[in-house]
């Protein structure tokens, strides 16, 4: 936990992103900030592009390489993420977060053993980073082990950012466990109710659980925060024109 996390600033001051005056001011930090903003909004394609721009300015930024690997995973491009993780690890040998990134790519491809080995190595080297714990939890979810929540709790304890529970929710959603995902998405929303992406993921989890009313509310909330959020708009339209389904009706009757 950072020392200044709980300091209170004026709202306008916090929200303001300093616009660079010239091309020269657009340094690697500017691109990284842009990438992070896009990532937090769920625009992974844009975030990937901005991470690349940051690396064009300075190739020694580990977070840039890590961000690229994580965005490739978020975009379901696992073999590419694995390959890029390997390349990054050639440059930053034994970097814990990059090892964890590769482990996540491998576990998404089904290589449980390889992922476990890489994650073990990441845990030894990463330091106070939450990401290896997140990946460790995902490996446990993939292996249908019951102690995954310990890893996720540890990750949340290390990084008290709203994105961490949201990432956990997305992991559960990936492994088709929406009931657990919705709980984590709820935590993310509770932490940052002003974040449209958190509402969007929560809505997706609820949609997976056939909780149409609450899903509609979540997507609407997301659209209130960002009126042109195309994904939320699409989901809401899908919900409205959703065809009739026996399974869904049964799900409702059974209280799912």
């Amino acid at each position: 936990m950072s020392r200044f996390d709980n300091l209170e600033f004026e709202e306008s001051e916090v929200r303001r992103t300093p616009e660079p005056q010239s091309e020269l001011e657009r340094d690697e930090h500017y691109w990284l900030k842009l990438a992070d903003d896009n990532r937090r909004s769920g625009f992974h394609e844009n975030a990937l592009r901005y991470y690349s721009r940051a690396l064009e300015v300075d190739k020694s930024i580990v977070s840039g390489w890590l961000g690229q690997v994580q965005m490739l995973i978020a975009l379901d491009e696992y073999p590419e993420a694995d390959l890029w993780g390997k390349k990054a690890l050639e440059l930053f040998r034994e970097n814990g977060d990059l090892l964890a990134g590769r482990a996540q790519a491998l576990i998404r491809m089904g290589d449980q053993r390889g992922a476990g080995e890489l994650c073990d190595a990441a845990m030894q080297r990463a330091g106070p980073s939450a990401y290896p714990w997140l990946v460790r939890g995902e490996i446990m979810v993939a292996g249908r082990e019951t102690i995954d929540h310990h890893c996720f709790d540890k990750a949340v304890a290390l990084a008290q950012d709203w994105l961490t529970p949201l990432e956990i929710a997305r992991i559960y959603l990936h492994y088709k466990r929406p009931s657990q995902a919705v709980a984590w998405a709820g935590k993310a929303v509770a932490k940052a109710p002003e974040q449209p992406y958190a509402w969007y993921v929560k809505g997706s989890c609820e949609l997976n659980l056939n909780l149409e009313t609450t899903a509609r509310q979540s997507f609407k909330r997301c659209l209130e925060l960002v009126p042109n959020h195309s994904d939320a708009q699409r989901r809401l339209t899908e919900l409205t024109v959703r065809p009739w389904s026996v399974g869904r009706i049964l799900g409702r009757l059974l209280g799912r």
């Binding site: 690349s52 064009e56 020694s60 690229q68 690997v69 390959l83 890029w84 930053f92 034994e94």
Partner: peptide, 28 residues
């Protein structure tokens, strides 16, 4: 300590990651 390259900032490297084509993603 870790063997990482210390001259990366000025190294000539491709920083654009490989991407899966739409067809590859669809096939997967």
């Amino acid at each position: 300590r870790c063997g990482s390259n210390l001259k990366l900032a000025t190294a000539v490297l491709d920083v654009e990651p490989p991407r899966a084509t739409a067809w590859q993603k669809r096939l997967r």
